[in-house]
Design a protein around this nucleic acid. Structure first.
Lengths: 207, 207
DNA sequence: TAGATTGTTAATCGATTAACAATC
DNA sequence: TAGATTGTTAATCGATTAACAATC
């Protein structure tokens, strides 16, 4: 993968291509042109071709793209051919919802542990995993080569926990706390700020 | 609000300004310059000034911005001074998590009803609201002037339900289903595709 | 072959930023 | 007043798109 300088605008679109190609593949479509896909997705064919070409020539002139092949290739680009080890930090409603989401497992994101400070939640079983107390977090991450931490805790403690995670050598944080996490440049943070999403919806309603 | 042609890039940033200003206000900061705010948020001061100026001159030359005032103004721009009526469709883990999230209520997003097809979930109480069966959805929306539907159902039924919602005159759909909803231009869809967010995280890990 | 469609260049469009006159 | 900082213009940067030669 020679993806050194791909803009985040392109990355933003890749999972959507992946989703459409997966559905086409499920429907038994084996071949598609950028024009056909562009009509389906309501984007320009130029954009599709330009986006894909950042990663290599997956198409065939005069033919288009092989759906299955392109699906697999984008999956590889997104790293979905590799396994990831996750911990969920915060076993509240959202943490539980994410832990229960089966599709993540299917895509190679394995939940190794769930952690919470609340003693009432510790010991609770969520799918196959028991909730552990927070003081076991650090050693757990180190001992199990955990890649990704899912942060579903209040913003008041999120920054402190993030620092701990960085010290343990975490590679990425999927952050649901309403705060920006200060991390070194080599630690990835993907924010899901639900309240901000709802505010954008609210803004767009009123015209 | 003369916000006719504001780009989504600007709207995307407004909730983040709102969050920082709220925190500054809580900390007792009454005044801030675009330069100070830019350092705090790691964006350019030019961008802050340009963004805000789309909505009017909230600052004072030589002084900066009044934190409390700017916070309130952005709240108004985002429509947070108005009340919204929501229904949550899908009372699974994610639907329950969102229904339990207190902060939405605080910002004027009132959950009026929760709906699910599963008879085992119907009648269950989530916070103050009982889960209703799906066949009551349509009349409920019409009778209660519901603005916003939160869609936390599998993608297989999401498109059909979205059509029903449009027929009932829903104004906006907060869509957590992994599918693009075909709606008329005047119905707002705000997508939260969690699996796509996780894929972007995965992509960014690997370099 | 004729038709179709890619990969890629060049043109366009839009968003960001530097700079500064206006002014509190 | 002198210093600070806005609002806004003009310049820059980057992303999108139209167009087409190459070619399967």
């Amino acid at each position: 993968m020679d993806n050194i300088n791909i803009s985040q605008a392109v990355i933003q679109r890749l999972p959507r291509y992946y989703r459409y190609l997966g559905e086409l593949n499920d429907e038994g479509v084996s071949r598609i042109s950028s024009r056909e896909l562009s009509e389906l997705m309501h984007v320009t064919a130029s954009q599709i071709r330009a986006d894909l070409n950042h990663f290599g020539g997956f198409g065939q002139v005069g033919y288009g793209y092989n759906v299955r092949n392109l699906y697999d290739e984008i999956g590889k680009i997104l790293g979905l051919d590799e396994n990831h080890k996750l911990v969920v930090i915060g076993a509240g409603h959202l943490g539980q919802a994410l832990s229960n989401y089966v599709n993540f497992e299917r895509r190679g994101f394995h939940i190794m542990g769930i952690f919470d400070i609340d003693p009432d939640l510790v010991g609770k079983k969520i799918r196959d995993v028991y909730v552990s107390p927070m003081n076991e977090l650090e050693s757990f991450i180190r001992n199990n080569d955990v890649d990704i931490a899912v942060l579903t805790i209040p913003k008041t403690s999120a920054v402190e926990v993030a620092k701990t995670l960085v010290n343990c050598g975490i590679k990425a944080i999927w952050n649901f706390a309403h705060v920006d996490l200060p991390v070194p440049y080599d630690v990835i943070v993907e924010n899901v700020h639900l309240s901000e999403s709802l505010m954008r919806l609210s803004y767009n309603i009123k015209r």
